[in-house]
Design a binder for these strands. Sequence first.
RNA 1: GCCAGUUUAGCUCAGUGGUAGAGCAACGGUUUUGUAAACCGUCGGUCGUCGGUUCAAAUCCGACAACUGGCUCCA
Length: 628
Amino acid sequence: MQEDRKSLDDRQKLTDLERIRHSCAHVLATAILRLWPEAQFAAGPPVENGFYYDVELRHRIAPEDFPAIEAEMKAEIKANHVFEKRIVTRAQAIKDSESGRLGGLSERPGNPSKFKLGNLEAIPEGEPISYYQNGDFIDLCAGPHVLRTGNIGAFKLTHVASAYYKGDERNPQLQRIYGTAFKTRKELDDHFAMLEEARRRDHRKIGAELGLFTIDPDYTGPGLPLWLPKGGAILEELEKLAKETEFAAGYVRVKTPHLAKEKMYQTSGHLPYYAESMFPPMELAEGGESLKRESAQAGSITQRGNDSTKYYLKAMNCPHHHRIFAAEPRSYRDLPLRLAEYGTCYRYEQSGELFGLMRVRSLNMNDAHLYCAPEQFAAEFNAVNEMYLKYFKIFGIEKYVMRFSTSAPEGLGRKYVNEPALWKQTEDMVRGVLVDAKINFVEVPNEAAFYGPKIDVQVWSVIGREFTLATNQVDFAVPKRFGLVYKDRDNVEKTPLCIHRAPLGTHERFIGFLIEHYAGNFPLWLAPDQVRVLTIGDDPALVSYAKGIVQELRASLVRADGDFGTDKINGKIQRAELAKVHTMLVIGPRDLAANAVSLRVHGQGNLGAKPKGAVIEDLLAAIKERRA
RNA sequence: GCCAGUUUAGCUCAGUGGUAGAGCAACGGUUUUGUAAACCGUCGGUCGUCGGUUCAAAUCCGACAACUGGCUCCA
């Protein structure tokens, strides 16, 4: 996109590391040309963790080609060529593109540098056009680069992907070769160690190992996770936390159906703009006739008739809550009205976008809608933010950014509802709350929702993976579309503001995040297996004592079980440790005699024998306090 | 959706045209145990699905499906 093009000023701000990576991209192109002189190059920028270069080439580059390419790259680095900058005229650049010289090692008659030609067209008149040359390789490039190829530290090619020229699917598809580079070998090694740790913590891997959830593409469908009992335990703990927190904050809970008539989403404005992201409608006749399955094989339930009605699975809860607001006349005395629900929504994400629990088609949202008068807005919004911070503290989320997305004047009436005064008012209020609360935020113009400004919460797990977890939006448009009003003090009907908020996001994404955040080692209150009692041997007296402990814990709603079999104690401990059971109580004859338990905590090892009563008391307290 | 890769037992994987394998898990038995795996045995697979080539296909070819990595950060 033209408007996203980096300005020359921005380019001069490239960090040293970005210069190294961008330079390494040129070296990559040089190496590919040594092996395949006909290759045509498009773009080769530095990116977050490295760099890439897009290349058009008949030969399909595979990881098996990497050693040969890397060897050529090393030779180019060893040659220590200078990155020479030259300003040229547009005419000269066009001529060099047509001869195939640009993005090549020499002129290539009959093989013009077509992508470079396209790139040239994107450079505005009046902006200088520059070449960078290392050895024989000349590239159209604004720079900046390191001084010499020898200044590139340690690098490695990582993977191949495909990408459309200029990101547009109507353009030719190119091979994108990714690599990464660092100043030193050690930094490169650390980077790969971090990636390895990320793979180890992958929520899909740990989720399967611990039996938290499963995805069954054949029967249930892709993107529709099934929560297994152990994942269900985490889910219930989160809901309990949300219910307690919201109750204390004056929310009321509601429950709404999973589907609604077409009219609902026409009124909300989500149809037709959001239709692509919704599951296709179910069509059926009014009047209570039984459903006729016209095409059972295709799985659709259809009844065509003159008065047929379409039902849609809900992609969001807000319209349902709006109808609850509308269900009875509202007075200013009813406000703020805070409707909360763990609502299940369905979104038809494209097949290629599905990703474990992070991107799914059925999602349980920690949703709530707060209806308030404008003068109540700041206090309500502030309270929502405080709730976010409270949650971050419980989960030990230290690194986060709130992305405050605002409107842009040129989008009013098109991308955004045409209410300039309300936009200014709500944006000022939100900004004021963020500043007063000293919250870490960045303001992003021209990214608001069509009905109001929004805040997306981005968090980083301990391994540095970024997640957009939660969202918090102001809505001053949709309540109007639904005709929602309250009777104010002055006996005038007014439209309330609505705050959409979901501090815990969805169960799917939040639990996915927590799995990676904790590497599956959940704190006691969240752990699917909180306590396991292990007997040394299966002597009946021991087993009876151990069973009593399990029963006592379960009576206090602790997820406790026992391993009373004939396996050796080492085997029982190994199994419990691999299952990441939080607390293990080992019971042998010595413990039975002393009315004690031997305490072992996952990750902490054997903590020795302690009085039974004290251990149970402390477990209950730790769970109640949601101790980290 | 598009491009590429992958798909063999519940899990992790071996098997490149000639009788489908291992470890773990599960199940049965033996073992009576003090802090990360006791021992023996048994069960378990239309090699993702469908079609083609071949005397013969997990293996070669094609289609489809699912999964994984990308497709935004642009000379």
